[in-house]
Design a protein around this nucleic acid. Sequence first.
RNA 1: GCCCGAGUGGCGGAAUUGGUAGACGCAGCGGACUCAAAAUCCGCCGCCCUAAAAAGCGUGUCGGUUCGACUCCGACCUCGGGCACCA
Length: 882
Amino acid sequence: MDEVYDPAAVERTAQEHWRELDAYRAREGDPRFPKGKFYVCSMLPYPSGRLHMGHMRNYTLNDVVYRFMRSSGYNVMTPMGWDAFGLPAENAAIDKRVAPAAWTRANIADMKAQFAPMGFAFDWSREVATCDPAYYRWNQWLFLKMLKSGIAYRKTQIVNWDPVDQTVLANEQVEDGRGWRSGAIVEKREIPGYYLAITRYAQELLDRLESDLQGWPPQVRTMQQNWIGRSEGVRFAFPYTLDGERRLLWVFTTRADTIMGATFVAIAPEHALALDLARRDQRLGKRRLTDFIEECRKGGVADAELATTEKKGVPTGFFVQHPLSGEQVEVWIGNYVLLSYGEGAVMGVPAHDERDFAFARAHGLPIKQVIEIGGQAFSPSRWLDGYASTEGSRCINSRSRDGRYDYDGKRYREAVDAVATDLAALGLGEKKVQWRLRDWGISRQRYWGTPIPIVHCEACGVVPVPESELPVVLPEDLVPDGTGNPLTRDERFLACTCPDCGKPARRETDTMDTFVDSAWYYMRYCCPDAPTMVDERTGYWMPMDQYIGGIEHAVLHLLYARFWTKVMRDLGLTRIDEPFKRLFTQGMLLAHCYYREEAGGKKRWFYPAEVTEQFDERGVPLSAVAKEDGRPVLYGGIEKMSKSKNNVVEPGAFVERFGADTARAFVMFAGPPDQSAPWSDASAEGVYRFLRRLWSFCYEQRTRIIGAPRTVSDGLPSALKRVRHDLHVNLQQALFDYQRMQFNTVVSAAMKMLNGLEAAKAQPEAAALLREGVGILLHTLYPIAPHIAHALWVELGYAEDRGDLLDAPMPQPQAQALRQDELELVVQVNGKLRGRVTVAAEAGDEAVKALALADERVRKFVADKPIKKVVVVRGKLVNIVV
RNA sequence: GCCCGAGUGGCGGAAUUGGUAGACGCAGCGGACUCAAAAUCCGCCGCCCUAAAAAGCGUGUCGGUUCGACUCCGACCUCGGGCACCA
């Protein structure tokens, strides 16, 4: 045994040992593990080429769970793969003139090499890369199945259009309403695309959040619930006549009780009626509507952008008929009405909707109160929160002039029911459940993705590629240049024959959203070489027992994966309803970022290594300068580590200096893993010091530990009894924290154990306790810092007694060690700490009370005031209320 | 703008979920060892007032519930994540 801790040597030896055992290859139904399977998986990384500290955190969490569960007797499997399609490869192609395929595959090789020294327990035999035709053929195959069943369908979509580069832009490529490369003002454009009908599953996606996903963080369930956004309301129509034709303008409302207060109708700029009215006006030589609709076309399609643009509207001068009051109501075009939600049209009830109120005030529209709440005064000049309340509300002023419809005095529910019944009788409406969730548009006008298996034939139209011709293989040698999808210019790819008529045809050039790739990769890990999409091995491992990934995926990825699973279930490919039994969302590692504005308003982001930072004593960044020229750079805030902001911190140098165990223990120790944390390596020394101390301690005590008795006798001196008590308390704490995945405090517990053993070593009777304690400590630390734990486990003879640390069962705290004869209780007077008393463990409340009142300091504070109450919390405290 | 989180010493954080606020570390200060340095070891380390103690104050801000609140409730402020074509 070496005297000094040498992480490089320790880690090399341990990794060789595991390699020889082929330790992480998981087998279905492995008889060594009678407790059954446990599938733990981290969200697969995008192969940017550089492993960063955020990855380190994600995969260390994953590895800790793997090792802890295996130590608990489970047949654990943890795979790894690559989310290999997507935009960054195309950006690299533009920058470096390399094909996305070559760049991506080189990155995968690089990152795999960077993973090697970390000691992660991945079963690499299950590796999947989503850009591999053997994988994405099943995206295509399932897409065809969905097309057949009607889940997949074609319709128009609205995208960001760069009028200079003549290309579709991702939301990320739109900066302040302009194209990132051209700087041109982005426009909305309608193009055809494929959609998956996720809304058909909306109810089930909502219901199973509560019934099946109790193992998910509550805030993620809440986010998904709000995203799906079920609302019950009424869909109804305002009749009108245009060009001599009688038509209906449909709207949706959750507040049908306020229908008699509707004083206008607002429709989306893209609404068919808006376009009709604009055309009609144009014929009369008026351009106001056309200009407004044109103006609304400017800017991107991102919701965050739409929601923050100023709310504007124009009157159309066109009136529709209120279905119940019969009054004429003017139609407005409003940029805040979304075509994609509900009917793309809303009734405006200024008195009881805050946004309508503001709109009516701005445009001088009538405000008619039709709801009264608890006698609260109503003023059309000032909005009050209560105006929109449904609680304790009653309808007023809600009679039609002819007296046929009267809702006065009705409460919210009654009024909604009555309105719905009346509308239904007229054939102008009914109750309806409306979802905020929209169908999933999967078409991307991009090269580096799964080709959509469709052929366009002049004679037959849109024709699906037959299953037998799958996969439609993406050519890998194209290099995008920023001016659109190179597939549209690649004759080899485009040319094909129509599967129906056999005449020459053209291939679809759109590719699939990369969320399709990540919707089911975790099932392919179970059977990476299957000749079908999935096989019975998927049935063994799924559902996944623990999924781990960034909180930024709380809605989209996780919702799509849930949906995809249900589609596969309904096609008979799997029997599970939900893919992820338990979910852990790790917080992100954040880092300061710096930039400089360059000509044309483009931002250049600096790497941390490229700037010199100055902080004040509170850690707030004061200023920073670029190393290259010493001139200041602008502070861009503290944000998630991302390639686009160049603020990633890489673990390579860190691991070289301290070793993988320190890196792993340090990222675990840095803070609670479900919360985001700004990266700082300032306190890494402390963790390294701890591992060195542990090694030195074991080296110094090795003979004593190896020769010590295997059981601790009852007759320990009281000082050692206390050490043993604390040791088992810390073990109990660590096991609890392992289960709730709070690994930062597991590291603390291990440190406390070492501190306790250091204090005990001077006692001559300590040998057996040291042996027990070091065993517990190594086992506690093992999932987090496996290399050093393995090395010491072998050196000190634990392996001979209990077998390889990989599969040795976790120690359990012993009741005998946890038992205490005396307890120290805290004494409070009026809730403030005033003293402490030591009592026998089994002392009753009355005895404890008496002892507390007898305490000198307590008596001083109680003085001669009468005692109102004494609260005794067993084993904790006494509170005397005076 | 909407949805979801988080704010505790100089710093990262702990408090087994309503019961001793600051565990465990980092940094700092003092000391031991050393010719010296590194490493290591020992001690101190929320604020305020002190010679020291005692008292008082203290978990983003303001208010509430409770014998007792970092923890529960209400309002607000700041920061982070997501908002459907970044992954």
